[in-house]
């Protein structure tokens, strides 16, 4: 069904569109018929710069299942990533290939555990 149900949220960051990188300040989120994805309904997100009124957007149309999985993985990565950077900021750490922070001593390991529990 077509719905008018739309969520908008302020964001801060950048996105890369057809003309290169640009600042984004708004994400528009809705679950409706996609324009391109071969789905009856999709979770759609438009990343835009509303303040500048730029016509450029970065858009995704995701299946409901993959959108939920993406949300879970975003939260997971945020949690582990922020914890890792907390270590680096406080006592230092080495980073192995793949970006995962590895504590360089037992004390740091304890900190990591407490940061993610």
């Amino acid at each position: 069904m077509c719905t008018y149900l739309t969520e908008k949220t302020e964001i801060f960051g950048s996105a890369k569109g057809p003309t290169g990188w640009f600042n984004v300040d708004t994400a528009t989120i809705y679950f409706d018929h996609p324009y391109h994805a071969p789905l009856d309904h999709s979770l759609n997100i438009d990343f835009v710069n509303e303040k500048d009124g730029s016509p450029v957007r970065v858009a995704v149309e995701l299946s409901a299942e993959s959108a939920r999985d993406l949300v879970a993985r975003i939260l997971s990565v945020l949690e582990s990533g922020e914890a890792a950077h907390l270590q680096i900021g406080s006592v230092g750490a080495v980073v192995e290939e793949g970006g995962h922070a590895i504590p360089n001593n037992a004390e740091t390991a304890d900190l990591a555990t407490s940061a993610t529990s």
């Binding site: 008018y4 739309t6 835009v48």
Partner: peptide, 17 residues
Amino acid sequence: GPGQPDDIAAKARAAGG
């Protein structure tokens, strides 16, 4: 508009239709 129909539709969506 102006723009591609899908981008214009996204703007309409953001404005509530």
